[in-house]
Design a protein around this nucleic acid. Structure first.
Length: 211
DNA sequence: ACCCAGGGTCATA
DNA sequence: TATGACCATGGG
């Protein structure tokens, strides 16, 4: 997996993730991007920003219909309005960024996973990109690319893949940060045209045998 | 017109 | 434990 990282980084360079001006914006984006194209999320975040509603207190005080309307472009707006509410309730109740950031990674991860609407990937997005914690994010692209490369079957459980990645990949939070972003960039460039193609164009460069 | 996107929850067997 | 339904907009 380190070889794949080297190839991706050589091809695309540093990605400087996560797009967002503040940790809180990163976390909001992590919820809104669930099963959703990032360009749609940008529109939703832009709506929150330009109406001066991108803060924990503002989101919590908005009516459901108002919040849902603002985030309409990101899809699933009724579900995500509720998820943003539950997340922000936790965020404020837990003491906001500085206090939350004093938690150890395991405790913080468990605390995030207890929030309705925050699953494993969303929690790990937040841990890695908002709290700078050393967790490897597993997503659909990870499964797709590494199953095509023959590294995994693809239907393994999230936790199994995360631990495998954290065991294999160089133990560095900055590497984890770039790795997930690079996988997304690679998928955007090459896997989107043929989502169900059998191979992966990384094969040509790294010489791994397809499964 | 069809397929998919930087998932997660809930009901069912 | 493990599938399936559901959520919904916007771009290719």
């Amino acid at each position: 997996m380190n070889e794949v990282y080297r190839l991706l980084f050589a091809e695309y360079g540093p990605q400087n993730w996560w797009p967002g001006d503040t940790p809180f914006e990163v976390m909001v984006g992590a919820v809104l991007t669930q099963n959703t194209n990032w360009t749609n999320v940008e529109k939703a975040i832009s709506n929150l920003t330009k109406t001066n509603n991108l803060s924990p207190q503002k989101i919590l005080s908005l009516e459901h219909e108002q919040l849902a309307e603002l985030i309409t472009p990101s899809g699933y707006f009724n579900v995500k309005a509720q998820r943003l509410k539950s997340f922000v309730s936790w965020y404020i109740g837990a003491g906001e960024y500085q206090v939350i950031n004093s938690m150890d990674t395991r405790g913080l991860r468990a605390s995030l996973l207890a929030v309705k609407g925050v699953g494993p990937e969303t929690a790990d997005d937040m841990l890695l990109y908002a709290f700078d914690r050393k967790v490897f994010v597993i997503d659909a692209y990870f499964r797709r690319i590494f199953s095509r490369l023959g590294f995994i079957n693809g239907d393994e459980k999230y936790e199994q893949l995360r631990l495998m990645a954290e065991d294999e990949v160089t133990n560095d939070v900055q590497i984890y940060n770039e790795y997930h972003a690079l996988l997304v960039e690679h998928a955007k460039r090459h896997c989107k045209i043929k989502p169900r193609c059998e191979g992966c164009c990384l094969l040509e460069k790294c010489g791994f045998e397809s499964s």
